[in-house]
Design a protein around this nucleic acid. Structure first.
Length: 523
DNA sequence: ATTCCCAGCGCG
DNA sequence: AAAGCGCGCTGGGAAT
């Protein structure tokens, strides 16, 4: 091996290209070592977290190298159809726009849209606020408002939104895949503040983010011939974590108890609206919860969607905007849910969540960092009394705990089950495939058990998050004709087109499970 | 021709 | 007064 002493190198050394690159590479490696020493001497990291991050290189390298098979025909068809529809939408839009200002209108150009709507059509400007900055936006929300308020804007808005939506979908279908027909994403294990992995285009420039693919488009990814695909997700994991923290910090287990006993959102609805005629029978109560509360939203919907936003210190104003209901509706909701309202005699269902916010604010003021149950510590460098900092800190704890739980489960599955092949990780779920010849029951059973990562509260309460498994031949909602073709070619039973695609695997009821497994086999 | 930033939007 | 957080990718358009 050649030894090159860089201390004695100069421009006059005239290294050949290959040697030069070796020097470059060697120096790069030295940087890594220097960083390592610096981190460990000056800023000791929890050795468990550090070792864990290193250990994750194994399974993630495997996921990255394996990639996921792409159903080429499905992809090709979708691409063609989208192009056709987009061309049509664009042609109509240009024709309409031509009548207004004698030139075309690019729906993806905010600049042109601003000129068109605000200068040419003279619609009053709509400003929005993002992270404290006022912006003149024409995003979906603003366009929908224009459409509501100005009849003549409707055809334009409709075409623009349709076009943008299709363009977004096309991004996935036109992502370059590898010559062997596989989509290989890169995963960054240590790239985020929370411990979540992130995903992006790989080092060779192909593939893309595997974690933001719309569920409706996932069907183009499929298991390899002779393999079945399985997705296991952790049920309502972040909500349960919030409940766990409330229990650990204040001994108030109300929220977690509700997560763990039957239908979380119905139980939340019962606590939030105690005056409804609940019967105590889970089935009847769910029906009552599914009655309409406001517009198309049931009480259960409100508990679910409004609850999630509210847990993370979202204001009633924001929640109202997101659910498209009047602010007063969400004010009332939040009063009953967490915040209470003494002036109206409203006692909140989950006051501990507000105490958790308070606790978080105190941590920021006193020590400036927060440590998760897994030992992951995050420093907050923003102003401790700034709402933005508080929100980051509030979101950190459940988000990071979920990330580590999922990754620990992923590692355990990878380590203990060489017969399965990991394909993807999407924050609260993992996707893998396994040979069809193996016993599906025991595979899923074992994976579910391994994914159960147990935490124990200071008071000794054990806590884990149940997983739910779905199985099928592709990653999507629909079994495609290609799947049928493949099953036929493989001499297997031909799957029928199923609106669910991946067939649901009930976790908690063994009898129902065996029944559904049978169904999955037939399908 | 390339690089950079922004707006917009997908996921959990 | 501002009004969940965490990511990555694309096209438009300006700057280099």
């Amino acid at each position: 091996m050649p030894i090159i002493n860089t201390a004695t190198l100069s421009a006059a050394s005239r290294l050949d290209l290959s040697t030069n690159q070796q020097v470059y590479c060697g120096l790069d490696s030295c940087i890594t070592l220097e960083v390592f020493d610096k981190i460990h001497l000056d800023h000791p990291v929890d050795p468990a977290i550090y070792s864990f991050e290193r250990a994750l290189q194994g399974p993630y390298m495997e996921i990255m190298q394996r990639g996921i098979a792409v159903d080429k025909l499905a992809r090709f068809k979708a691409t063609g159809e989208l192009h056709e529809q987009m061309d049509r939408a664009r042609a109509i839009l240009d024709e309409f726009a031509g009548a207004i200002w004698d030139r075309p209108l690019n729906p993806r150009s905010p600049k042109q849209l601003k000129e068109f709507f605000y200068d040419k059509l003279k619609i009053p400007e709509k400003w929005i606020s993002i992270k404290g900055e006022r912006k003149l936006s024409l995003n979906r929300e603003v366009l929908e408002k224009l459409s509501d308020e100005y009849l003549f804007a409707r055809p334009f808005v409709s075409l623009i939104l349709t076009y943008r939506e299709m363009a977004k979908q096309l991004e996935l279908f036109e992502t370059e895949i590898d010559r062997d027909g596989r989509f290989r994403a890169s995963y960054n294990i240590a790239g985020t503040e929370t411990g979540r992995p992130s995903s992006s285009e790989n080092a060779f420039g192909t593939g893309g983010n595997a974690q933001n693919i719309a569920p409706g488009l996932r069907y183009i990814f499929c298991s390899d011939p002779g393999y079945r695909m399985c997705v296991i997700d952790l049920e309502q994991v972040e909500a349960r974590d919030v409940g766990f923290f409330c229990g650990c910090l204040f001994g108030d287990w109300t929220f977690l108890d509700n997560c763990e006993s039957g239908d979380l959102h119905t139980n939340n609805a019962k606590l939030i609206w105690p005056e409804r005629p609940w019967t105590g029978n889970p089935k009847e109560d769910k029906e009552i919860a599914e009655q309409i509360f406001y517009r198309e939203f049931s009480f259960r919907d409100m508990a679910k969607r409004g609850g999630h936003l509210s847990n993370y210190y979202g204001t009633a104003w924001t929640a109202a905007r997101s659910l498209k209901v009047p602010s007063q509706i969400m004010e009332d909701f939040q009063a009953r849910y967490i915040r209470g309202d003494a002036s109206r005699g409203i006692v909140p269902a989950y006051p501990a969540i507000a105490r958790w916010w308070q606790w978080t604010a105190e941590q920021l003021e006193t020590v400036g960092h927060i440590t998760t149950p897994f030992g992951r510590k995050r420093h907050f460098f923003g102003r401790p009394n700034d709402d933005t900092t508080l929100r980051e800190a509030i979101a950190f704890l459940p988000q990071s705990t979920t990330a580590d739980r999922m990754n620990l489960g992923l590692w355990k599955v990878w380590h203990a089950m060489p017969q399965i092949q990991l394909l993807a990780q999407t924050y609260d779920s993992i996707t893998f495939q396994y040979p069809e010849s193996l016993d599906e029951n025991s595979i899923i059973e074992e994976a579910l058990a391994l994914l159960k990562v147990e935490l124990v509260s200071p008071s000794g309460r054990k806590y884990s998050v149940p997983g739910e498994a779905k199985v099928g031949w592709n990653w999507g909602r629909q079994v495609t004709p290609a799947d049928q073709e493949r099953a036929r070619a493989a001499g297997k039973r031909v799957p029928r087109l199923n609106p669910d695609g991946l067939i649901k695997w009930s976790r908690s009821k063994p009898d129902a499970r065996s029944r559904l497994v049978g169904l999955a086999r037939i399908a």
